[in-house]
Design a protein around this nucleic acid. Structure first.
Lengths: 259, 259
DNA sequence: CGGGTCGTTGACACATTTCAAGTTTAGTGG
DNA sequence: CCACTAAACTTGAAATGTGTCAACGACCCG
């Protein structure tokens, strides 16, 4: 089984030229043929460097490019009238930043960089043309959007029905899976989120996030230092957050998730 | 302007045969040609009646049909471990129930009928074939998913950052627009949601929803009786919920939204 | 008429926010 | 290497929004 998938990916990755989308959603879709991959690569604008704490996109503006993160973290966010911020997505390497630019005329959210990052741009019009010509591309874009919907539904469940500590644990579990760090009992990975950013993702105050982080630390479920987080017992953390990774639809072939 | 849009819709609706998808998302998309509409109609299974309080789909199961609601209300929901329910969508006439059945292999949510309803079914495989052949169909499906995405993001903002009363008011405003009831200062429409259902949508307890409903009533923002709700001053309600309908992308041609 | 669902109420408990300090850490320039 | 600054993290006490529990009332339908 493992041999099979490995040889398959060896075949699909016979490109030696620099491939900006290699580690990307657009490249891991099960519905994408080799030629469709190449067509997408062909219209990609080479990666651009973006500074932390800057807005890649602003709410209400029109974007004529699709962006894909190849390195670094970002988030989608919206502001409420009284200045509160709520994140609607955390964007990790491989993620598409603004799929909706394809079909909607203005961004419903801003996108802020959380670390220094690299992004690849795909001209909107060209992607539209490609997706009209290649049904695999259209299917991939739809699939990506559907998976994002699933993630957002899960966030709604967390925001609406989980306690602060469970929410925090759940988010950490999600990130561990998405960053493909999960492969054993214990796990550690780069974690650039400030407690304030976590608060904006979880619908909490920074102060309370702090208290919950310390509780998780006290219970031995997380350790953190220097922007790195360690989960000594992933299974226990998952249990306390009632986390089930299936909603993420991570491609098991390209990660080391055991489950 | 009004003449123009009316004559246009007269052209696109030259069918006299029963059209199960007429008042449906799939039929209002700006990217759908007449022949594409017809192709979709052709594979539609005639409307089926569904009883209230029954599950149309169950979480984790595989669906081989796409369902479209033509009459009545339903909701998507997920359960948390301890039996709490959180809605991730309210489904109104015209809405597609389970778009993700197209591309994902199991439903991440259940769908429960909230009233007696009629649903049209579209065989999954046939829709997939059609969307591979007609780029307008693929585009429409993507667009629908993207709009759902925006709605979910807005729900996240509400759940994370709005007070109980604001959340309730916001949801009522959303429903008023989606049901196309908004056309003046005052508005009233059929409202079959119980306070318990509202609680599951808003991430609150039924008891607290009750208190918030009465507060809105006391402030003259809402009146309700016999499954009908009246909003005597929509503008005031919107203000208190900081509601802005643009995220819904309602098709202005087919509704009477003034904005 | 009776039973069930839905709405209403009050007293109390508790999770989370608010406010208002500190303290530590990371980054910068001398 | 140190001094200095800003950002991030900590901490405690008090305020408050929402949940919990438990009861009662209104309405619908068979």
């Amino acid at each position: 089984m493992m041999h099979l998938t490995q040889s398959r990916s060896a075949v699909t990755q016979r490109v030696d030229v620099p491939s900006p989308l290699r580690e990307t959603w657009l490249n891991h879709s099960p519905c994408l043929s080799y030629s469709e991959r190449q067509a997408l690569e062909a219209v990609a604008v080479p990666a651009k460097r973006v500074q932390p704490h800057t807005d890649l996109l602003r709410e209400g503006k029109r974007a004529d490019h699709l962006f894909v993160i190849t390195e670094g973290w970002a988030c989608r966010y919206v502001m409420s009238r009284d200045g509160c911020r709520q994140l609607s997505a955390l964007l990790l390497p491989g993620d598409i930043v603004n799929l909706d630019a394809l079909s909607l005329t203005w961004q419903a959210y801003g996108v802020r960089m959380l670390t220094q990052a690299s992004v690849v741009a795909l001209p909107r019009e060209q992607v539209l043309m490609l997706s009209a010509q290649h049904s695999g591309i259209a299917q991939t874009l739809l699939r990506t959007s559907l998976i994002e919907n699933g993630t957002l539904s899960k966030w709604a469940l967390c925001l609406g029905r989980l306690s602060a500590k469970e929410r925090l644990a759940h988010l950490i579990c999600e990130l561990a899976v998405r960053i493909r760090a999960v492969d054993g009992k214990s796990v550690s990975f780069d974690f650039p989120l400030t407690q304030e950013t976590l608060a904006d993702a979880l619908g909490l105050t920074p102060v309370h996030v702090n208290r919950m982080v310390r509780e998780l630390r006290a219970e031995g479920l997380v350790e953190d230092a220097h922007r790195t987080i360690t989960l000594p017992d992933v299974a226990a953390l998952r249990r306390m957050a009632s986390f089930d990774a299936s909603y993420l639809h991570v491609n098991v072939h390209t990660s080391r998730v055991s489950n």
